[in-house]
Amino acid sequence: MKNQEVKKNPEFLEYVFKLNGDIQLTEAFKSSLKEIDEIDIEQFNRIGLKTYEKGKWTIHKILQHLIDWERIWCFRAIIFARAEGTIPDAHDQEIMAKNSNADERSIEQLINELRTVRQSTILLFASFNEKMLQTNCVFFEYEMPLYTIGLTITAHQIHHFNVIKERYIPLDM
């Protein structure tokens, strides 16, 4: 599938396409799973609950955020794939992070859950046929074909893993 023209919020989707590069959805999922498997758990544990700036999330909360939002994007995908109708209003990531217990969980637990959720996401998108993957999804300020929801999930991970590399890994020095 080629990344097609989008009608609403093209800046968001251009960022998604840029982060993923010129890659097909199945390859994007494989690559994202490989990145999860390559996380240096010991390094993340050494960083612990440190943040690079007051008020920023811990690595624990970033991982929980990835898990939560992947589930939300998969819910959206299934609603569109099954022609169920509309999806509810947007969710607030700050409220969700504040009310998570991510900092009480171990890095190992969070990474295992992220891996499991990603494997489930891969199976979900593999169950969609070509017609479903090309379904036009219109919600909030977005309009995109269904397959780009999958690319949004992988781009979201790339974005946050880049933040971890740039701003959190230096805390381990």
Rank of each mutant, 00 (worst) to 15 (best):
Q93C: 04
L25N: 07
P145S: 00
N45A: 15
A126G: 06
L171N: 08
M173T: 08
L123R: 04
W69Q: 02
K54A: 14
K7S: 07
I149T: 04
K2D: 11
V6E: 01
I62Y: 06
E84P: 00
H159P: 04
R167H: 10
I87C: 03
V6N: 05
P145F: 10
F139D: 03
M132N: 03
N20A: 05
A28Y: 06
T116D: 00
V163H: 12
S32E: 02
I47W: 12
D172H: 10
H156I: 06
S106D: 05
E141T: 13
D22T: 10
E108K: 03
K50H: 15
Y147T: 04
A81S: 11
S127P: 05
N129D: 15
T135S: 07
E108D: 04
N129E: 10
V163M: 14
T51C: 07
I23W: 06
E104K: 12
E27A: 09
I41T: 11
I47H: 08
N112W: 01
F29D: 00
N99F: 12
F29C: 01
Y168V: 13
I47F: 12
L146N: 02
N3K: 15
H156F: 04
Q134N: 11
H91I: 09
V16Q: 10
S106H: 07
A155E: 07
E38Q: 13
N101E: 14
N9E: 05
I153G: 01
I36R: 00
K18R: 12
M144T: 14
K50S: 13
I169H: 10
K61I: 06
V6G: 01
I47N: 04
S127T: 08
A28D: 05
L33G: 02
E143C: 04
F125E: 07
